[in-house]
């Protein structure tokens, strides 16, 4: 089957656009609704691969280092990110604990891993891995469900709530997680559907 990669439709309003293949370095918006059809950054693939790799390494630090330490007089408690999740894990709260685990760790890491799987062969100059299109499609659809940045705001709110009763120290995992959120935000500026899909399908043979 053949398709024309220069003819794309806006996902929001269905208007057809012709995106010239020579103009990969030109950004383009939908003429009707203003949706960014292509970001015009051919370097996006390399950036996304590099940032996805970085975020997986950072998440490794997050998992095996203390996240927050609380000191209240003679009492002290330390919590890793995993502890934060397991705090919920009693009785009927177990499903909630598991979904929090997914939102803040599993899905963000899965997204980075899927992007790496789908796009790194393009950088390496080898053929696509089997199932690469499904991996890329999945990575895009995971976007709203990966909530690392929202968790970080939650941490800030919790710190203020605790400020009156105890002293809180940030551990290595806290800073790694903050970095993870920044890396992810930077990566999202390169997540252009048209650029990534064109690059992926150009190599499929």
């Amino acid at each position: 089957m053949i398709f024309d990669p220069t003819c794309i439709a806006c996902p929001n309003c269905d208007v057809l656009h012709k995106v010239a293949p020579a103009a990969v370095a030109t950004r383009a918006k939908c003429a009707q609704c203003g949706y960014r059809l292509t970001s015009g950054r051919p370097e996006a693939i390399a950036r996304v691969v590099g940032l996805a790799l970085t975020s997986i390494i950072l998440m490794g630090v997050v998992l095996f280092a203390p996240f927050l330490r609380l000191n209240a007089g003679p009492f002290g408690s330390a919590a890793s990110v995993v502890d934060v999740v397991l705090g919920f894990a009693t009785g009927i709260m177990v499903p909630l604990a598991l979904s929090v685990l997914c939102f803040i760790i599993v899905l963000p890491v899965a997204r980075a891993a899927l992007l790496l799987y789908a796009l790194s062969p393009i950088i390496a100059g080898v053929g696509n891995f089997p199932g690469a299109p499904a991996a890329l499609r999945f990575a895009f659809s995971l976007k709203p469900w990966a909530m690392a940045e929202i968790f970080m705001v939650g941490v800030a709110v919790a710190l203020v709530k605790l400020a009156g009763m105890a002293r809180v120290e940030m551990g290595a995992a806290f800073w790694a997680f903050a970095l993870f959120v920044l890396v992810n935000a930077f990566q999202d500026t390169f997540m252009c559907r048209n650029t990534l899909w064109t690059a992926l399908s150009a190599r499929r043979r």
Partner: peptide, 19 residues
């Protein structure tokens, strides 16, 4: 998705405040 903040706050407080 930003509504999820309060759920995460509860998770963090539960994990930390255990004396």
């Amino acid at each position: 998705r930003w509504s999820m903040i309060d759920v995460f706050v509860v998770a963090i407080l539960t994990a930390l405040v255990q004396f």
